[in-house]
């Protein structure tokens, strides 16, 4: 799939949208405008943007506690997301979900999730549903390297392979699970080996290379749409910031994250260079896209701050259909 100049520009814009959304989320959290916890996707943007770039609007994704990037990549509205972070009535969940629970059923986002591994069954169910309804929709299930140790992956992965479901299990190996490195908690040498136990192909990709993610996930999606079953994709990346905003990061050397912030590794800078070197973009153009993303985020914050709180009676709404 060749990408037009406009499409490439949009991908670059989206990377910045996610980066800047999370920068804003971090700042608002530190200003005590958010409640609970919030998790940033900083450094992993190319995974969501690359993967979602091969999806159609009617395809599905499930997301995680670190979900802002997935939702934005699938086409989520930053204004309604920001309003949700501030607990406003105009938010995606009417202020009832917050940072960890953003969903947009209209664009196939079946929810971020507070339960590690909580999306695995749901995504597999969406893929099953597509086969029963006779559509060629596919589902991407985003989850972390830590989540790959949840039992439900074994169960759902087996069924997906048995039933040749149109799903991509997209494991983001960001090297951490909460306050521990994730590696010491996996007996397999490479995460993709887990795919063998489910009986499906396993592929590993550089998650900080947007076009590589797009290629690998694109092939998996094509297989899935053609009825050839699921794929287990491991995107190798790095959680540049703390587990949650406010995490003092006492458990890892600061130099480590610095390396991943460097122009050589940072997914946005890498993609930007590629656009200039191989696709005829000018640095002024890139700067313009970056600024445009900043404007969108600023506008989202304004919208969120000016939005009303839910009414007390809303407490009782939406418990049942």
């Amino acid at each position: 799939m060749e990408l037009s100049h406009q499409q490439l520009a949009d991908l670059y814009y989206r990377l910045w949208l996610i980066r800047l959304f999370d920068a804003a989320a971090r700042r608002l959290f530190m200003e005590n405008k958010l409640r609970g916890t919030t998790h940033t996707y900083t450094g992993q943007e190319a995974v969501a943007v690359g993967a979602c770039s091969v999806l159609r609007p009617d395809d599905y994704i499930t997301s995680t506690h670190r979900g802002h990037g997935h939702v934005l990549a699938k086409g989520g509205d930053p204004r309604r997301m920001m309003a949700e972070l501030l607990g406003k009535a105009t938010g995606y969940c009417k202020g009832k979900g917050g940072s960890m629970h953003i969903a947009d059923l209209d664009i196939g986002v079946l929810g971020a999730n507070g339960i590690v591994g909580g999306g695995i069954g749901i995504a597999t169910g969406a893929a099953y549903s597509a086969t029963v309804r006779g559509t060629d929709q596919v589902a991407i299930c985003f989850f972390g390297d830590g989540a790959s140790n949840q039992g439900i992956l074994m169960e759902a992965g087996n069924m997906a392979a048995l039933w040749r479901l149109p799903i991509i299990y997209l494991c983001e190996e960001n090297q951490y699970a909460e306050f521990s490195p994730s590696r010491p908690f996996m007996a397999v040498e490479k995460l993709e080996q887990k795919a063998a136990a489910f009986g499906m192909p396993g592929v590993t990709v550089d998650g900080n290379d947007l076009l590589a993610v797009r290629r690998v996930v694109g092939e998996a999606v094509a297989r899935a749409r053609a009825g050839d079953g699921p794929t287990f994709v491991v995107a190798q990346t790095y959680r540049v910031e703390g587990h949650t905003v406010g995490d003092p990061l006492t458990y890892r050397p600061p130099e480590e994250a610095e390396q991943w912030r460097s122009p050589e590794r940072d997914p946005i800078q890498r993609f930007g260079r590629k656009l200039v070197d191989d696709f005829g973009f000018t640095s002024a153009e890139l700067k313009g896209l970056h600024e445009q993303a900043q404007q969108t985020i600023d506008e989202a914050i304004r919208f969120a701050e000016e939005s009303p709180e839910p009414e007390p009676a809303d407490l009782w709404e939406d418990v049942l259909a």
Binding site: R35, G36, E84, G87, K88, C93, G95, K96, G97, G98, H101, E309, P310, P312, D314, L315, W316, V319
Partner: peptide
């Protein structure tokens, strides 16, 4: 507690 899942919004949560 109210017979609802707990909401994120502070005012609603207090009410629950």
């Amino acid at each position: 507690g109210a017979d609802v899942p707990l909401p994120y919004n502070g005012r609603l949560e207090m009410a629950a």
